[in-house]
Amino acid sequence: MASPTVLSVSRDHIQLPAGSSVTLSDQTWADYEALLASRREDAAIKIRFNAHTQQISLMAPMAGHGNRIDTLVDLVKALLRHQNRDWHSYDPVTLKRFQEAGAEPDACFYLQNWRSVLGKERIDLAVDPPPDLAIEVDLTSLTDLAVYQTLAIPEVWIYRQGQLMIYGLTTTGYDSLAISPTFPTVDVKTLLPQYVERAWVAGSSVALREFEQYLQGD
Rank of each mutant, 00 (worst) to 15 (best):
A2V: 12
L7A: 15
S10H: 11
R11L: 08
D12L: 06
I14G: 11
Q15S: 15
Q15H: 08
Q15W: 05
Q15P: 08
G19C: 12
S20R: 02
S20W: 03
S25V: 02
D31N: 01
E33A: 06
A34T: 09
S38A: 07
R39H: 10
R40Q: 13
D42S: 14
A44Y: 03
A44N: 13
A60L: 03
D70N: 13
V73Q: 15
D74K: 14
R85H: 09
D86M: 09
W87N: 03
H88D: 14
D91M: 04
P92D: 05
T94W: 07
A101R: 01
A101G: 04
P105W: 00
A107H: 05
Q112M: 07
L118H: 06
E121N: 07
E121C: 00
D124Y: 13
I135K: 06
E136Q: 12
V137Q: 06
L139E: 13
L145T: 00
Q149T: 00
I153T: 07
W157Q: 08
M165T: 09
M165G: 06
L169D: 02
T172F: 08
G173M: 01
Y174Q: 01
D175F: 00
K189N: 07
E197M: 00
W200A: 09
E210A: 03
F211L: 01
E212M: 08
E212D: 12
Q213V: 04
Y214K: 04
G217K: 10
